[in-house]
């Protein structure tokens, strides 16, 4: 049994049609798992289902063996699950440090030490601590978003397309940061469009098609699987 597990999840938004069908995803601590697939395959939806942003018709979500299927997103945050949305993932009108503080909103004890840890992880943020996040570059914003999500010292970090819209150099840098986070014994689940690069740093990956698991395996296996290569990785 994996640390964080969504099994046989079926559901969609509101009363709409099912977007994911008996979809299963799991991730262990200290592991990076990517969810890949073509547009509209339900990648983000699967992730949001695990966060509790949509009502599941069937299936379950567990963390560390505890069933959290019926918890609200806010309560799941308290269980140590952190999420970085694809868009609008920072408080643009607030400073870097205030963003981090907001990430620690649920922590009542002194969180300054955690902020220092984040600054060690992302040194650039320390330099820009009093600047408005809206004035930072795209890559720096993503670091703020990561930092905010890490403030609760999560056991699971979910990233929705962390490298969307950034340049290849910044993408490599961000992936380096994600690997650093993984080394702190966090389970990382991410949805990615840049499949090749993502699989390169992933321990495992899932390929979803029309809301169902199609292929899965270690990053290397998927990279070398001719069917995956031809359909998703551009040969």
């Amino acid at each position: 049994m994996a640390f964080f597990e969504g099994s046989n999840m079926t559901g969609g938004y509101g009363n709409g049609p099912d977007i994911i069908n008996a979809c299963s995803v799991n991730v262990d601590r200290g592991e990076i798992v990517s969810i890949l697939g073509p547009n509209g395959a339900g990648k983000s939806t699967a992730m949001k289902a695990m966060l509790g942003l949509l009502n599941l018709k069937s299936g379950s979500v567990t963390i560390n063996g505890k069933n959290i299927t019926n918890l609200s997103p806010q309560d799941r945050v308290k269980e140590g699950i952190s999420f970085v949305p694809q868009n609008k993932n920072v408080f643009a009108g607030m400073t870097v440090e205030e963003n981090l503080e907001m990430g620690a909103f649920l922590i009542n004890k002194n969180y300054m030490t955690i902020i220092d840890e984040i600054y060690d992880l992302f040194p650039i943020l320390k330099e820009k601590r009093n600047q408005l996040v809206g004035e930072l570059s795209g890559g720096q914003r993503q670091q703020v978003a990561l930092g905010r999500a890490l403030m609760i010292k999560p056991s699971v970090l979910m990233l929705d397309e962390p490298t969307a819209g950034v340049s290849p150099i910044v993408m490599d840098e961000l992936f380096d940061h994600i690997i650093k986070v993984k080394r702190t014994n966090v389970a990382i689940l991410m949805v990615e469009q840049n499949a090749k690069q993502a699989l390169n740093i992933s321990d495992r990956g899932y390929v979803l098609v029309t809301g169902e698991n199609r292929y899965s395996g270690t990053g290397e296996e998927l990279l070398n699987d001719p069917r995956v290569r031809s359909s998703f990785l551009g040969g």
Binding site: P73, Q74, V77, K78, P85, M102, F105, L106, R148
Partner: peptide
């Protein structure tokens, strides 16, 4: 949305 995700 992000405020809600942060537990506010």
């Amino acid at each position: 949305d992000l405020a809600l995700l942060s537990g506010i």
